[in-house]
Design a protein around this nucleic acid. Structure first.
Length: 107
DNA sequence: TGCTTGACTTACG
DNA sequence: CCGTAAGCCAAGC
């Protein structure tokens, strides 16, 4: 569903939708989102930095499982509250990495 | 028009 | 496991 009033680009909408779709206690990496919606990991970060406040941004972590730069404490607190498998200050991607179901995106 | 920056990744030692 | 280097994509100045 489109966010009325905010004419965001399709790419931004795709990213935000994907992030909103991450279940509680699970996470996705910037690279995974980039592979999902296209572009590069940095572009995902760009969108998150601008519109991430409207989505569960703490469920988006770096490739090594560590939360976004400058948001580590807040993200870890949220993740811990959600019951995500934390290991020494970072998320255990082995257990918490979420793979979105196919069908609603480009084949 | 061209360089710098950024919620990044992978490879190497 | 940790630090450094190079690569990649788009926006901003």
């Amino acid at each position: 569903m489109a966010r009325a009033g905010t004419p965001l680009d399709d790419y931004t909408e795709q990213v935000l939708s994907a992030v909103e779709e991450i279940p509680v206690g699970w996470v996705m990496t910037y690279g995974d989102l980039a592979e999902l919606v296209g572009g590069g990991p940095r572009q995902i970060g760009q969108v998150m930095a601008r519109y991430g406040a409207a989505v569960p941004w703490w469920r988006v972590v770096r490739a090594d499982g560590q939360p976004a730069r400058g948001h580590e404490p807040r993200a870890l607190e949220r993740l811990a509250a959600e019951g995500a498998p934390l290991r020494r200050g970072r998320v255990e991607l082995r257990l918490a990495r979420y793979l979105p179901p196919p069908g609603r995106d480009a084949p």
